[in-house]
């Protein structure tokens, strides 16, 4: 949960100082990727999926839509993961499905983070009544159950395609980050370097973009990772119950078709297993990066090292 990290007692503070020569900024991002095993695992998984998403045509052996093979074949040299109940090659579907799932995660992650930033930071920066109203709106969105709302939204805008799916995820996914970013911006609001900028006569917009945002880089990145994870899961859930476009090729729609064809009982369990596994791996990549980030920005959470 987004709780203020209280300063640890004197002893750990020394440790934190030594461990963190430069707090904030892109240094942390860089360190996160290289120095931490969990982060490294996340980066590798993400990299592999990125390649699959960019050049699926070079890697997938068959047309993912073509229903040209025998149904529910087991894994073989021709069909690494077997075929679906409709006679399609599961391995090809899996590779082609990467693109949409990854696109949803990244686009929705970016958009929601943008909204979180806009609302969270202006809420903290403006203060007073604006802060009160914006915080209230944030809390309302935070507490409203997302899946039923997503379902209602998606059901009304049925067949609106990928755009609708992404908007639904963004609308329901920005609030958590906004709250976290607000509390961090709030703690920055009265820092000296901001006063200095104000004294120089800089406008609010300038102060927010050039003075506040850079110090919040690590939280912004963490927030993006969190929303991306949420987007992967939400998209999968919506597509699974048939609210995506069933003719799109994505992991969620694969699960939809697998479930509707009773894949588990009909002898093609891989049809249901592998897309979920990929969703989980992609989600885990984001989650691991996020977790590593937590550890890097809050040294107290790191695995303990003992002297002896």
């Amino acid at each position: 949960m987004g709780l203020d990290v209280r300063l640890v007692a004197d002893q750990s503070a020394i440790q934190a100082e030594a461990a963190r020569p430069e707090a904030g900024g892109l240094h942390i991002v860089g360190r996160a990727l290289l120095g931490n095993r969990k982060a490294l695992a996340g980066v590798i998984i993400l990299g592999i999926f990125l390649v699959l998403a960019i050049i699926p045509g070079m890697l997938a052996p068959y047309d993912p839509h073509a229903q040209i093979f025998a149904q529910t074949l087991g894994p073989s040299r021709e069909h690494l993961l077997g075929t679906t109940g409709n006679g399609q090659d599961i391995f090809s579907q899996l590779i082609w499905g990467t693109r949409e799932s990854l696109a949803i995660a990244i686009i929705a992650g970016l958009l929601a983070t943008g909204i979180s930033l806009l609302i969270g930071v202006s809420s903290a920066y403006l203060g007073g009544l604006s802060d009160h109203v914006l915080s209230l709106v944030t809390d309302v969105f935070l507490v409203i159950p997302t899946l039923p709302l997503m379902i209602v939204l998606a059901a009304y805008a049925r067949n609106g395609g990928l755009a609708v799916l992404i908007s639904v995820i963004v609308v329901t996914g920005w609030s958590y980050g906004a709250r976290q970013l607000r509390s961090q911006a709030l703690s920055l609001r009265n820092r000296e370097f901001l006063d200095a900028a104000r004294v120089r006569g800089e406008r609010s917009g300038y102060v927010i973009v050039f003075e506040i945002l850079p110090t919040m880089t690590s939280l912004i990145v963490a927030n993006f990772l969190g929303v991306a994870l949420y987007a992967v899961l939400a998209a999968a859930g919506l597509q699974f119950i048939g609210l995506g476009n069933p003719s799109d090729m994505s992991w969620g729609t694969m699960l939809f078709w697998a479930q509707n064809n009773g894949a588990l009982n009909a002898g093609s369990p891989l049809w249901a297993i592998v897309p979920g596994l990929c969703i989980g791996l992609l989600g885990a990549a984001f989650a691991l990066l996020n977790y590593a980030f937590d550890e890097i920005t809050n040294p107290a959470l790191r695995p303990v090292r003992r002297r002896r």
Partner: peptide
């Protein structure tokens, strides 16, 4: 502050944090 006086006290009292040890 930072000269180790509090650490000395907590070492005597056996109240050091886990990251810190009497060597």
């Amino acid at each position: 502050s930072g000269c180790g006086k509090s650490t000395l006290l907590f070492a005597i009292a056996r109240l050091l944090s886990p990251s810190c040890d009497v060597v």
